[in-house]
């Protein structure tokens, strides 16, 4: 499948943190093309198993999260509009006039209210509050109550826009792009020797605190974990600590990642002439790797990130070649390293 088509397919289904079943199904079916078996655990993590057939092979977990940020209904107002409570880190600036889907008895379309001109105080740069951002689903309270309950999910309306130079904008490239890179890695691995039992994992509830990865790492207890997430892409208003699009995946060096294996990864990237960038992170990477590293007796982690502009908006923008290079890098890494490389 063409990378854009794969990304679009992965961006389409909804999967608010804690309610990932829609994306879960899509991931299960995509994984099943490459895996001997696909299962789903208690919290909803999807695990695809690719055995290498060798006895005593080491276990490698490759994971990306499939959940996305959004909201849940906190209250139905007397005028039929909804107030919402955020799930994950939402920038309130993206909300006015944003289009949403309210997952009530049926999928309902809604618009987040924006202030009309006569109520805008031009001299005041006011703080926004979720209390003022009413979601208009076009119904009276009476009608709304028949269709919507407190706690119903609200997700941003989907939309995939191809831009120039292999760039594309979408609602939740964070971290469906990671899932796409996992699938591409599995595709490359079909043709490569690999001496590891691979667990291809799509995790839940990353956006609310790395929750799915924590329990999954405990369950699988792998010998090595490779996390794929997104990192901030460079834009005119954000240069520090950001990475340009199209210059390859970003490899993290720091206390969260296994130094020796990370160096190995870098060597392999250089030898194979795959573009990459380096991120030096002095502590919490804010990714699943942070939770996985300290599961059970400790799990060596590698963290690869795909540069993404406008993270946590509905126009998250990435370069599809970075996704492809990430998949390729993972597959070549697993092809080149030996079981004994995984040690301290």
């Amino acid at each position: 499948m063409d990378t854009n088509a794969l990304l679009e397919k992965l961006n389409e289904p909804y999967g608010l943190s804690g309610y990932e079943e829609e994306i879960q199904k899509v991931v299960e079916s995509l994984f099943s093309e490459y895996c001997a078996g696909v299962s789903t655990d208690k919290l909803g993590n999807v695990i695809g198993f690719i055995p290498c057939g060798k006895e005593g092979a080491k276990k490698v977990m490759i994971e990306a999260h499939m959940d996305e940020i959004g909201m849940v209904v906190a209250k139905i107002n007397d005028d039929g509009t909804l107030l919402a409570s955020p799930i994950g880190g939402i920038d309130l600036k993206i909300l006015p006039a944003a289009e949403v889907i309210v997952h009530g008895k049926e999928k309902l379309y809604g618009v987040v209210g924006a202030k009309p001109p006569h109520l805008i105080d031009k001299n005041k740069s006011e703080a926004r509050s979720m209390d003022d951002l009413a979601i208009d689903i076009g119904f009276s309270k009476q009608e709304a109550e028949k269709l919507v309950n407190v706690g119903d999910r609200i997700t941003f309306k989907s939309g995939y826009t191809k831009l120039l130079s292999n760039n594309a904008a979408s609602r939740c490239h964070d971290d469906r792009a990671g899932i796409a890179s996992l699938i591409l890695a599995a595709e490359y691995l079909k043709r490569l020797k690999c001496d590891f039992d691979i667990y291809l994992c799509a995790t839940v509830q990353e956006e609310v605190g790395l929750r799915g990865a924590k329990t999954l790492a405990y369950k699988l207890n792998p010998d090595l974990a490779i996390s794929v997430d997104v990192c901030h892409g460079t834009t005119p208003d954000a240069s520090d600590g950001t990475f340009p699009l199209g210059k390859g995946p970003v490899i993290t060096i720091g206390p969260n990642t296994h130094r020796k294996l990370t160096n190995k990864l870098i060597d392999i990237a250089k030898a194979e002439k795959i573009d990459f960038q380096i991120d030096v992170d002095g502590g919490n990477t804010g990714t699943n790797a942070w939770a996985i590293q300290v599961a059970r007796e400790g799990i060596p982690c590698i963290l690869i990130s795909i540069p993404l502009r406008y993270m946590h908006t509905t126009v998250e923008t990435l370069n599809t070649q970075d996704v492809e290079k990430t998949g390729k890098l993972i597959s070549l890494f697993l092809n080149k390293i030996e079981g004994e490389d995984i040690c301290f």
């Binding site: 939402i90 309130l92 831009l163 950001t242 993270m311 946590h312 908006t313």
Partner: peptide
Amino acid sequence: PGVLGMKAVHLQQGQARNN
């Protein structure tokens, strides 16, 4: 097609998040 992006919320410091 084009998008009106903005520096990610994670990168906005202090009051800028509310402004």
